[in-house]
C-alpha cells in the first residue's frame, strides 16, 4: 500500500531534499506532508493518515525527541515508524532516541543511498 509520509524539520531545504530522495526510492509513496516542528507534526497526525515519519531532533517549539515521546505515548501511533534524521550524532542522543522508540537514526549529512537503505529496512 502506498505510504503517506510526514517530514518534520524546521529547515524547508531539508524537507525539499527529503521529498526528492523519497521520489527516488522503491518505496511507493502516496503523498508527503510537511511540518516545521514537533508541535505542528502532532497536529497533522491528529487529522491526517500517516504511515511513516521522518523527523529532525533540533527544532523550535517542540524538538524531535519530545515529539517522539508524544507519539509513542499515543496508543494509535505506538507502532508508527519514526526515522530520526539529525545532526545530533552523539551516542547518548542515539541511545535516547532508541529508548524513546525511534525506528531508525540517520546522521546529517546523509546520502540518498543511506535514506533509501533505512526506508527499505522498515516494516510498514
Amino acid at each position: 500500500m502506498p505510504l503517506d509520509v510526514l517530514i518534520v524539520d524546521d529547515s524547508a531545504a531539508i524537507r525539499k531534499i527529503l521529498q526528492r530522495v523519497l521520489a527516488q526510492t522503491d518505496v511507493p509513496i502516496n503523498r508527503v506532508l510537511e511540518a516545521g516542528d514537533g508541535k505542528e507534526a502532532l497536529e497533522l497526525l491528529r487529522t491526517e493518515k500517516v504511515s511513516l515519519v521522518l523527523s529532525d531532533i533540533n527544532m523550535p517549539n517542540m524538538d524531535g525527541l519530545q515529539f517522539l515521546t508524544e507519539v509513542r505515548a499515543n496508543e494509535e501511533w505506538k507502532n508508527l515508524p519514526v526515522l530520526m534524521i539529525t545532526t545530533e550524532g552523539s551516542q547518548a542522543k542515539v541511545m535516547e532516541a532508541a529508548q524513546l522508540g525511534a525506528t531508525g537514526y540517520v546522521r546529517k549529512p546523509f546520502t540518498a543511498e543511506q535514506i533509501k537503505e533505512k526506508l527499505a529496512s522498515i516494516r510498514y
Binding site: 529547515s11 524547508a12 531545504a13 531539508i14 545532526t87 550524532g89 552523539s90 549529512p109
Partner: peptide
C-alpha cells in the same frame, strides 16, 4: 532569498553540529 538563507542555516547546522559531535 528565503530559500538561500534557509539553506545556509541548514548547512551551518550540519557543519557546526558535526564539529560539536
Amino acid at each position: 532569498n528565503d530559500e538561500v538563507l534557509d539553506a545556509m542555516g541548514e548547512l551551518t547546522n550540519m557543519v557546526i553540529g558535526n564539529f560539536k559531535n
